[in-house]
């Protein structure tokens, strides 16, 4: 059995973003998918989320100065 990277302390929490939330992110930053940072579809950290190309992942990072810092990535073909 392979090691589950999502359990590792250094791997930030990767979450699924609903379509409505996705729209609100786009609206908040006045952007679309091509302006976002990317993540490969077969990235091991999001393997358990069952996402498709074009979806967003929300990454909650533990930050020394900000507590939890939110980051978004768009899924691209891997």
């Amino acid at each position: 059995m392979a090691f589950d990277v999502t359990k590792h302390t250094l791997v930030s929490k990767h979450l699924k973003v609903s379509d409505t939330e996705k729209e609100s992110v786009f609206k908040q930053y006045n952007i679309n998918s091509k302006d976002l940072p990317k993540i490969l579809k077969d990235d091991i950290a999001i393997a358990h989320l069952n996402l498709k190309v074009g979806d967003l992942v929300k990454i909650e990072r533990v930050s020394k100065t900000a507590g939890i810092a939110v980051y978004y990535r768009v899924i691209i073909e891997g």
């Binding site: 930053y29 952007i31 091509k34 302006d35 976002l36 940072p37 990072r61 930050s63 100065t65 900000a66 810092a69 939110v70 980051y71 978004y72």
Partner: peptide, 13 residues
């Protein structure tokens, strides 16, 4: 115009 960080330095300071 592509996003590099959503909040500057994670804490906006």
């Amino acid at each position: 115009g592509r996003v590099v960080q959503f909040t500057y330095g994670e804490d906006n300071l």
